[in-house]
Amino acid sequence: MEKAETNFSVQKVKHLADLARIEFSEQELDELTSELNVISDAINKVQEVANDDVERTTHPFALENVFRKDAVGETLEQKSALAAAPKQKDGMFLVPQILAED
């Protein structure tokens, strides 16, 4: 498997911040970049022992086929679903204008 070495640049961190939808100031980006480079050295180590013959573990215990029967259960009332909404209208969540279509 190919190894990855990460050197975080401000530009890269900015791209990650875009993906993660967090606004940062220039100064915050600078700080974050240097902190991430310190962390990066610590985490690169995982690649040393991750050989191709080792399988991946997603779940601590190998469970499978945990299902639910297709039967209707409790639902939230509209009022309580909307109770915490920053804004609401006509039984719906009001969100600011969406610029890009999905």
Binding site: M1, T6, L16, A20, A50, V54, E55, R56
Partner: peptide, 19 residues
């Protein structure tokens, strides 16, 4: 976000799952 991003996923997330 970095560890999961395309091009790094196997090297980081995948390796960590192996660990």
């Amino acid at each position: 976000t970095h560890a999961l991003s395309s091009g790094y996923y196997d090297a980081y997330y995948g390796s960590a799952q192996k660990v």
